[in-house]
Simulated scan of single mutants.
Amino acid sequence: MQALIQELKEKIIAVLSLEDINLEDINDNDPLFGDGLGLDSIDALELIVMLDKDYGIKLTDPKEGKVIFQSIETMAAYIAANRLK
């Protein structure tokens, strides 16, 4: 699971062009939106595309996304349980 968490951090930094953020700056349990990383709705769309492209996971329910994108750790757990790639 730790390898997947590391991979997710790298992908999020790359996909969202967060050049001012290092891997060490992202805590596994910090919120991705709001006070944590401060991501917005456009970033959420990018993350949804990344899940589909890289892991074969299609999100259709916005409520599901709120749960999955709470933190890096919740994303990694969801990917580990549902990935198709």
Rank of each mutant, 00 (worst) to 15 (best):
L51N: 09
S41I: 05
F69I: 06
A77S: 14
K58C: 07
I13V: 07
E7L: 13
N27F: 13
E46S: 12
K58W: 12
K66V: 13
G38T: 01
L16K: 05
D20E: 12
E64H: 06
G38E: 04
D30K: 10
R83S: 12
I42M: 14
V49T: 06
V67A: 14
Q2F: 12
I57Y: 05
L51Q: 03
S17C: 15
D30A: 08
K9I: 05
A81C: 09
L8C: 01
A44P: 04
P62I: 04
I12S: 04
F33L: 04
K66A: 10
T60M: 15
A3E: 10
M50P: 02
K9F: 01
K63G: 15
A80S: 12
L59T: 03
D28C: 08
N82M: 04
K11F: 12
F69N: 06
V49S: 06
D52H: 15
D61R: 07
E46G: 11
L39V: 02
S71L: 00
E7K: 15
A14C: 11
D43I: 07
E7W: 09
P31D: 14
D30V: 09
A3D: 12
I26Y: 02
N22G: 14
L45W: 11
Q70M: 13
E64D: 08
L16G: 07
V15C: 11
L32N: 00
R83I: 10
K85T: 07
D52T: 14
I57R: 05
A77C: 11
L39Y: 02
K11G: 05
L16S: 06
L8P: 01
E19V: 08
Q2N: 15
I72V: 09
K66E: 15
N82Q: 05
V49A: 09
I68P: 02
I42A: 12
Y55K: 03
E10I: 14
Q2P: 12
L37Y: 00
V49I: 11
A80I: 09
Y78W: 03
Q6Y: 15
G34C: 06
N22R: 14
D30I: 08
K58Y: 12
P62L: 06
Q70T: 14
Q70L: 11
F69Y: 07
D35P: 11
I13N: 03
G34N: 00
L23V: 11
M75V: 04
D28Y: 06
S71H: 03
E64W: 09
D35F: 10
Y78H: 02
G65F: 13
N82A: 07
I79F: 03
L37M: 01
M1C: 13
D20A: 09
I21Q: 05
E73I: 13
A77F: 11
A44S: 11
S41M: 05
L16H: 05
K9H: 05
A77H: 14
A3M: 10
G38S: 01
L18P: 02
K66W: 14
I42Y: 11
N22Q: 15
V49H: 09
I21P: 08
L8A: 00
I12C: 04
K53C: 08
G65N: 12
L45R: 08
I68L: 06
D52A: 15
A14K: 14
V67G: 14
D40N: 11
D20H: 08
E10G: 13
E73T: 12
G56E: 01
M75W: 03
I21W: 00
G56A: 00
I21M: 07
I12P: 02
D52N: 13
